[in-house]
Design a binder for these strands. Structure first.
Lengths: 219, 219
DNA sequence: TGGCTTATTGACCATATGGTCAGTAGCTGG
DNA sequence: CCAGCTACTGACCATATGGTCAATAAGCCA
C-alpha cells in the first residue's frame, strides 16, 4: 500500500533492491537456486521462501515464472539434465582407437565427474527420492538418462565385439550394459550417502572396475 | 462377560476402539506403520498423524513411546536392519564347496531378495534420502550395512584366491569388493526409481553380472 | 521526456502439521 | 471387587509454509 522511502534512500542496503531482469536471465537464476534447495531438503522439505532467498528475490516472483512448487521442481530437474551426457556422447562419436581404450576413457570420465560434480549426485538423489511420487520423473529418468547411458555402454560393447577385442556375445547380452554402468552409479550413491571423506575412494573403485571389465569382457 | 463383547470376540476387527497393549507389542506396531509412512513420503513428507492412523492409534500415543519425529525415524531404520544380512552370513559360514559356487549362490540370493523384498528397497531409499541430514544414519549405514556387505564379498574373493579359482590379486584389490556388490545394489535403486515393471529385469542383470564376475575374477 | 508494459515486491491468507496435555479407561495385583 | 497405574485419546496450540494479490517501479520505445 505504502512506499518505503527510507529503504530507497539508503545506499548501504546490501541488496541492490529491485532489479528488473528479462525472463531469460531470471529463469535460470531461479532454477539454480531451486536445485540447491531441493537437493538440500528434498521436495517436501524445500521451502519456496528459501528458494526465493537463495535467488535474492521475493517469493512471489517465483510464482510469476512457475505456477506451483511441483512445476518448479519438474523444470529444475529437466534443466540440469541437458549437458549431462554430452561429453560422453562426443567422446564416443569422435573416438578412433580401440574399444578397450574407449572403455577406459569413458570409465575414467565417469569417476572423475562423480568426484568433482556435486550437482550430478544431487540430481540423482532427487530422482531416487521423488520418482515414486512423480511418475513423469521416472519416465524422464528412463528415457532421457538411463536409456542414454546404456546406449553409450552398449555402443562400446558392440565396437569391442566387432573388432574382436571382446567376446562376441557381449554385444547383445541382456542386462550387461546396465551391469557395466552400475559401479559408477553406485559410486555416486555412496558418495551421497557417506560424503566425500567417508565414501569408498573413487580411484580404487575405478581401477578395480576397469580391471574387472577388461578381464571379463575379453575373449 | 466383558465390557465390549463383540469386539473382543473378533480379533480381526479393524478398530476395536481403545485397546491397551503392553509396550513390547505396541512399539513394533508403531515402527511398522512408521516405516510404511516414511518410505512413502520421505522424512519431511511423513505426517505423524498418518503414522498413527496406519497403526490404528491416536497421534498422541506415538509421543508416549518416542519423544519426537526424528527419534521415531531413527528407531524405524535401526529396527529393520537387523535381519538383513543374516541369511548371507549364514550361507557364507556354512559353505563347503568352491568359491565360484558360493559366489553364484550369493549373487542369486541378492537379486532374488531385490525382486521380492520391497521393504529392503524402501529402507535403502530412506538412507539415501536422509543420510545427509542425519549423520548418525550415514555412520549407521557405513558400519552396519556397507561394511557387512563388503565383508561378505571380500571373504568370497579371498576364498577364491586361496583355492586358486580366482587370480591371487583379487583377494586384496582395493575397491573390488564394492565393485562386485554394486550391480546388485543398483538393481535395487533402479527398481525403486522405475518400479517393478519398468526397471531392468533382475534375471538379465543377474546372469550378465555373474558372467562378468566369473570371467573377470578367474585366473 | 513521458507513458506503457510487466518484472518485482511484501504483506496477507488458509491450511497443514509437529507437538502438548488434561482427562479417560483398560488391565492387574491385592 | 476395588484401586491404582499407565496406555490411550482427542481436542488444542504455535508455527510454518504454499500460494495470492494489489501496488510499485524498472526498463523501453515513441
Amino acid at each position: 500500500m505504502r512506499a518505503t522511502p527510507d529503504a530507497s534512500l539508503d545506499p548501504t542496503a546490501p541488496s541492490p533492491g529491485r532489479r528488473r531482469l528479462p525472463p531469460e536471465a531470471r529463469t535460470p537464476q531461479i532454477l539454480r537456486a531451486a536445485l540447491d534447495e531441493f537437493a538440500e531438503r528434498g521436495y517436501a522439505g524445500a521451502r519456496m521462501a528459501a528458494v526465493a532467498s537463495r535467488a535474492g528475490i521475493a517469493k512471489g516472483l517465483i510464482y510469476h515464472y512457475f505456477p506451483s512448487k511441483e512445476a518448479l521442481f519438474q523444470a529444475t530437474v529437466r534443466a540440469c539434465t541437458q549437458p549431462l551426457f554430452e561429453e560422453a556422447e562426443r567422446q564416443l562419436a569422435g573416438h578412433a582407437g580401440s574399444a578397450r581404450e574407449l572403455l577406459g576413457a569413458l570409465v575414467h570420465m565417469g569417476y572423475a565427474r562423480i568426484s568433482a560434480d556435486r550437482q550430478e549426485r544431487t540430481l540423482f538423489r532427487l530422482i531416487i527420492t521423488e520418482a515414486e511420487r512423480f511418475p513423469d520423473l521416472a519416465r524422464f529418468y528412463r528415457e532421457e538418462m538411463l536409456a542414454r547411458a546404456t546406449g553409450i555402454a552398449r555402443a562400446v560393447l558392440r565396437a569391442g565385439a566387432a573388432s574382436g577385442e571382446f567376446r562376441p556375445e557381449v554385444a547383445e547380452m541382456p542386462g550387461l550394459a546396465e551391469v557395466v554402468l552400475a559401479p559408477v552409479l553406485m559410486a555416486s550413491v555412496w558418495r551421497m550417502i557417506l560424503g566425500e571423506t567417508d565414501a569408498p575412494a573413487p580411484e580404487g573403485l575405478r581401477d578395480a572396475h576397469l580391471d574387472l571389465l577388461l578381464r571379463g569382457l575379453s575373449r
